[in-house]
């Protein structure tokens, strides 16, 4: 099975609030993510980006509209074990080693065949943790834990990869390194990927398209296409064309950016 497309069609989501009118988190949001594409979702806190990601993951259900992954409900993808997910916080099992944590999705899906288990060591090496296979999460730094979480998200070779601010808790230097690593890993096996982030540079460095959201109520303001060819070098962050695109996204985010000619 390969990557699958994601179709979000006029999705609405309301949250009940005690003593107040319900909060409209998503207001008829429509978005298509082609199979094998990398999309970044950016917007201010509370604009509904994480809500949208949870709907695609099948962790939440829309009040109106539909979310389809590869032509089926997200639940189908869950049952088939074809989803990968990583959060802002690594959320590792404290009692399991690095290898054990990466293995968790295989335990849950029951896909403990030799081929899948063999993948664990490769992935641990791929995220640069060779030599730390038997370490417990408490013995790792924040960046290392996050890399375990990325390896865990990839261990099932998912058709859809959902990343909810996976590097949000890391410092800027480590973030850049992790961005480059994620690109390297992603290019080995193109998976339909949705990255929720607060970082404009991160979004532009990794994605084919940057979706700018406003809210509440959450809605899509602009979609910015990113033209740079992969693999994108870290020097791209200093490229004038990259900078111009950053300004464009910032303008879409804040309305306008002082000092920018655009």
């Amino acid at each position: 099975m390969g990557a699958r497309d994601i179709r979000i069609d006029a999705v609405e989501r309301r949250f009940a609030r005690a003593g107040q009118a319900p909060l409209l988190a998503l207001d008829r949001v429509s978005l298509d993510l082609p199979a094998g594409s990398f999309t970044a979702l950016i917007g201010p806190s509370g604009c509904g980006k994480s809500t949208l990601l949870r709907l695609i993951a099948g962790l939440d259900a829309p009040d109106g509209g539909a979310v389809m992954v590869g032509g089926a409900a997200p639940r189908v993808l869950q049952r088939e074990g074809r989803l990968g997910i990583a959060f802002q916080d690594a959320a590792l099992l404290p009692w399991r080693t690095v290898t054990g944590n990466v293995r968790l999705p295989l335990d849950v899906t029951g896909h403990r065949d030799r081929e899948s288990l063999a993948r664990i060591a490769d992935l641990v090496a791929l995220v640069g943790l060779a030599g730390f296979e038997q370490a417990l999460p408490a013995q790792l730094s924040g960046g290392m834990r996050q890399r375990v979480a990325i390896a865990r998200a990839l261990v099932t070779e998912p058709d859809v990869l959902l990343l909810d601010e996976p590097f949000g808790a890391l410092d800027q230097i480590l973030r850049r390194t992790m961005n480059a690593e994620l690109q390297r890993i992603w290019m080995r096996r193109a998976t339909t990927t949705l990255l929720v982030t607060h970082g404009i540079d991160e979004a532009l460095f990794l994605a084919d398209r940057v979706v700018v959201m406003h809210g509440p109520p959450g809605r899509i303001a602009t979609i910015v296409d990113v033209p740079f060819a992969r693999p994108r070098p870290l020097t791209l962050f200093a490229d004038p064309a990259f900078r111009a695109l950053e300004d464009e996204v910032a303008a879409a985010l804040y309305g306008r950016v002082p000092g920018s000619a655009a």
């Binding site: 869950q78 074990g81 997910i85 099992l93 968790l104 849950v108």
Partner: peptide, 27 residues
């Protein structure tokens, strides 16, 4: 139990029993 770990189990198609077995009991 950490709610994100419970989400993780659900995302991989695990139900209440899987959550109990892999996350809740040991935690």
């Amino acid at each position: 139990a950490d709610p994100r770990l419970l989400d993780l189990v659900r995302v991989h198609g695990g139900g209440a029993v899987a959550a109990l077995r892999w996350v809740r009991l040991r935690g």
